[in-house]
Amino acid sequence: MVLKRIFRTVIMGPPGSGKGTVSGRIVKRFGLTHLSSGDLLRANIKAKTELGLLMKSCIDQGQLVPDDIISRLILTEMRSIEQSSWLLDGYPRTLAQAETLDGVCSVDRVINLDVPFQTIKQRLTSRWLHLPSGRVYNINFNPPKIS
């Protein structure tokens, strides 16, 4: 099913709540463009863009990426798809980011994944990340394929 009007939604939840998995299903079912803040962050760091270098510097110092920098990253990407329906994954995370987003566009729906802490803990302690590709694995239900 492809939507006939522009539809904008945000998916929220803590790390390990399943945002990426649920987002993939929503994007496939409804034909939305998926904007993942984590994917954009990793791609910009890998490409050594101006924003990527700023974000890498923060991360290397053990700091969170400042709201204005992550907002610039997301809003720049949003401009390229402004006539499309989209699903934001991982943004906004703070009140300042939400206010920035609200000042730029309206959101039709927010999906909040409410997952018990014990489930998140189990998922995160079983999670593996393949740094070169950015692929995420879970040793319990999505182990890496060994060839």
Rank of each mutant, 00 (worst) to 15 (best):
residue 67 D to G: 01
residue 117 F to D: 13
residue 35 L to H: 04
residue 93 R to W: 00
residue 105 C to S: 14
residue 71 S to L: 01
residue 78 M to Y: 07
residue 73 L to I: 08
residue 27 V to D: 01
residue 38 G to Q: 07
residue 87 L to V: 09
residue 112 N to V: 13
residue 57 S to P: 00
residue 25 R to M: 14
residue 145 K to G: 01
residue 126 S to W: 08
residue 27 V to E: 04
residue 7 F to E: 08
residue 122 Q to Y: 05
residue 140 N to T: 14
residue 137 Y to W: 06
residue 136 V to T: 13
residue 26 I to C: 02
residue 7 F to W: 14
residue 68 D to M: 06
residue 103 G to N: 13
residue 56 K to I: 09
residue 108 D to P: 02
residue 106 S to L: 09
residue 43 A to H: 02
residue 1 M to V: 12
residue 7 F to Y: 15
residue 139 I to M: 03
residue 28 K to E: 15
residue 61 Q to N: 11
residue 33 T to N: 06
residue 6 I to G: 00
residue 116 P to A: 11
residue 45 I to F: 04
residue 119 T to L: 01
residue 33 T to L: 05
residue 106 S to E: 14
residue 122 Q to K: 10
residue 20 G to P: 02
residue 20 G to I: 04
residue 29 R to I: 11
residue 130 H to Y: 15
residue 107 V to W: 03
residue 116 P to E: 13
residue 125 T to W: 00
residue 53 L to S: 05
residue 5 R to M: 11
residue 26 I to D: 02
residue 113 L to F: 08
residue 123 R to Q: 05
residue 133 S to C: 09
residue 52 G to I: 08
residue 93 R to P: 02
residue 95 L to A: 09
residue 103 G to L: 05
residue 97 Q to R: 03
residue 75 L to P: 01
residue 60 D to T: 04
residue 140 N to A: 07
residue 84 S to R: 15
residue 47 A to R: 15
residue 35 L to T: 09
residue 20 G to Y: 09
residue 143 P to Q: 04
residue 117 F to E: 15
residue 119 T to A: 00
residue 90 G to R: 03
residue 5 R to Q: 14
